[in-house]
């Protein structure tokens, strides 16, 4: 009887260890939702949920990209500027060059992936630090956005005339916002990639110990560059949805500091900036948590100027608790 008990105990510990962070975020999310709803019943209203779902969808897509890069112990700071640049290019392609929308969208996706490939090349082959490469990208793409748009706000005219693109960004299916559905698909695809594919295994391996991965015959440069390509591609996907949904893209402010939402969601969801840790489900929960927090600021009548302060405080508390739990469970063993 005794060994059996011990075994089930270690099994539970194993699960808790594996999904501990995700579980913690999930509990926090549920508690927060309950509290907010008690204080303001509009929180769980259809309209509010749809709104949040749409935002979670868009933010989650580039959040997954951010997580892929963070798992390799890298970072991608270009997201916000890429959202602006790619959004403006989409507008120009469709409204000024009159490209058919599928072609324009495809070009944007390929362009996003290509930018990611350039980041990956500079990081792995030229051996620049990810922070520096993407910081330069952040400045460069923002400047290019302003230049290409001649500092004018770009849009899509009557956005309902965009057809499928409008549906994908602002539409609902059976009441569920389409971006949220797209996120589900993206999450399933990249969940499989990260957790069940050889590439995913390599990503974790490289993030945890690049040297040992190299000694195991893994082409670590290709793997790392691949993560940046994925991040670029997913950012482009989010860029299309956000651009069309907002309908107006101001080159100087569109997407400003969105890279930080991606990074924050990944970190809240269990990614370590040291690399080698994190899960897709964690990123989804992290993204949702961030949106709920923003929503809470509005719904609870907290001055919206405190928006960022609330985000910062909650993330800080979250990672602190996680660290303390980690230290305690570590010292026990």
């Amino acid at each position: 009887m005794r060994p059996l008990k011990k075994r089930s105990c270690t099994w539970r510990w194993g699960v808790l260890k594996k999904f501990g962070k995700e579980l913690g975020v999930f509990v926090l999310l549920v508690v927060l939702c309950t509290v907010v709803d008690v204080l303001n019943h509009r929180f769980l209203g259809i309209q509010n949920l749809q709104n949040m779902g749409r935002l979670v969808g868009m933010y989650g897509i580039f959040g997954i990209g951010a997580a892929m890069v963070i798992i390799t112990s890298g970072i991608d700071l270009t997201v916000g500027s890429m959202l602006a640049l790619l959004g403006i290019l989409l507008s120009i392609a469709m409204m000024e060059k009159h490209w058919p929308s599928p072609l324009a969208a495809l070009a944007i996706l390929v362009g996003g992936g290509a930018l990611g490939a350039i980041h990956g090349f500079l990081i792995t082959k030229v051996k620049l630090q990810p922070f520096i490469v993407t910081l330069c990208g952040l400045l460069l793409y923002r400047g290019l956005s302003q230049f290409v748009a001649k500092d004018e706000t770009k849009g899509f005219g009557d956005s309902t005339a965009l057809g499928w693109l409008y549906t994908a960004s602002s539409g609902d299916i059976l009441g569920v916002p389409v971006p949220f559905l797209i996120l589900i698909v993206v999450a399933i695809v990249f969940g499989v990639v990260l957790h069940y594919s050889v590439f995913g295994r390599y990503l974790y391996a490289v993030g945890r110990n690049e040297e040992a991965a190299r000694y195991s015959g893994i082409d670590t440069k290709k793997v790392i560059a691949g993560a940046y390509v994925i991040a670029g591609f997913l950012t482009a996907l989010a860029a299309i949805l956000i651009a069309v949904d907002t309908g107006s893209i101001s080159p100087s402010s569109h997407g400003n500091s969105y890279e930080l939402y991606g990074i924050a969601a990944a970190v809240l969801g269990g990614c370590s900036l040291k690399g080698g840790e994190g899960s897709i489900i964690g990123v989804l929960l992290g993204t949702a948590l961030l949106q709920v927090l923003q929503n809470l600021v509005t719904l609870l009548g907290i001055p919206s100027s405190l928006n960022f302060a609330v985000l910062g405080a909650v993330i800080l508390i979250g990672v602190t608790i996680d660290q303390l739990v980690h230290q305690r469970s570590g010292s026990k063993r």
């Binding site: 050889v198 040992a212 195991s216 893994i218």
Partner: peptide, 26 residues
């Protein structure tokens, strides 16, 4: 030699992943 934060299974199969996968899936 090892990625110590990974399991025995993950370490043992790391260099031979191609043998334990079909179309890139483990």
């Amino acid at each position: 030699g090892l990625i110590t934060a990974m399991t025995i299974r993950e370490n043992v199969t790391l260099p031979g992943m191609a043998r334990y996968s079909t179309i890139g899936l483990i």
